[in-house]
Design a protein around this nucleic acid. Structure first.
Lengths: 166, 166
DNA sequence: CTTGGAAAGTCAACAAGGCTGACGTAACTT
DNA sequence: AAGTTACGTCAGCCTTGTTGACTTTCCAAG
């Protein structure tokens, strides 16, 4: 409160106390962020890892396993377990690459797309409510801070996805 | 970037596409958010769950086990496993309540406070950098959206902590 | 055409950190 | 005296992450 001169606000909001609040906001908000899809998945035989896979396959149809590995940041063994369930249950389809036949291109089946939509709808509903409550200016700031918080590599992936869809 | 102008911003930012970007921003940013403390914990025998416990005990010294349970949103068995490690290693101290002797009040020891500080410093450094990069207005919006995203109960807990420290 | 290496898949074993259910004890409340 | 609350603990389970080792398939360079 007693930063003498020095541009005031630009220093004031960087106190440890302010930063701690931001940290706790992230913690509590992320819980809300995942709560709705988790509730839906609870009945089914799937978990949050399946949701993530469905999301990014939906987002980038035809993506390879390696792409997905990089985006999700897990080992291929870990992803494989999850992907296997989705393939076996016919929610995801894997097609051998045309150029490179070693690669597998992943697509959602109709049933996979249906579950993905169900999960997304729940998550989007909360996001939409939060955006509405906070307003456009806040949303802009929200996205700016989140982008600045990402690791450079993650940010690259995020921006690549972001632009490919815009 | 390529948002085609239009004063429709107040509607435009609620398209599914915009919401999806927000969802992915949360996903990638949360990874960054936890990356630094995780790296520190990797060497030690502790995990993210220990970090959370240390954080909230530091934040609210003397908090009871039940309080912590509610804040963290896990079962007592799950918390107990984590807390036991911290107690056995002398990072956390448990004192029997004066009014109600059933309660255990939790405190960080000097060593516990030291580890907590180390973890917090790493996490705060990233948060500080993100705040600096985005600026005060963005930070305000960031916090507004996160608060709006929390479950009402979580938000209550968040605000209670927030005010007690302000 | 052979060979090196990349992409993918698989098996096995393990750890962290969630969960449920059941049970015990001490202490407060009615 | 009986019931409830706070805490701890045992036992077992699940999801999702990890390493390490190994195979198959295939592209590409020698």
């Amino acid at each position: 409160m007693s930063e003498p001169g020095a541009g005031g606000e630009s220093l004031l909001f960087l106190t440890d106390e302010q930063l701690r609040k931001g940290i706790e906001a992230m913690f509590f908000a992320y819980r809300g962020f995942t709560a709705d899809p988790d509730r839906i998945l609870d009945g089914l035989d799937y978990g949050r890892a399946h949701h993530r896979a469905l999301h990014f396959i939906h987002r980038s149809p035809g993506t390879t396993v390696n792409n997905l590995l990089n985006i999700l940041g897990v080992t291929k063994q870990s992803l494989n377990r999850v992907l296997r369930g989705l393939l076996d249950d016919g929610l995801v389809e894997s097609r051998v690459g045309k150029q490179d036949k070693r690669e597998r291109h992943l697509f959602l089946t109709a049933r996979g797309a249906e579950l993905e939509r169900q999960l997304s709808d729940a998550q989007r509903a909360r996001m939409r409510a939060a955006y509405r409550a906070a307003g456009p200016v806040a949303v802009q700031g929200f996205r700016q801070v989140l982008e600045a918080m990402m690791d450079p590599e993650m940010k690259r992936q995020y921006l690549a996805l972001k632009e490919s869809g815009a």
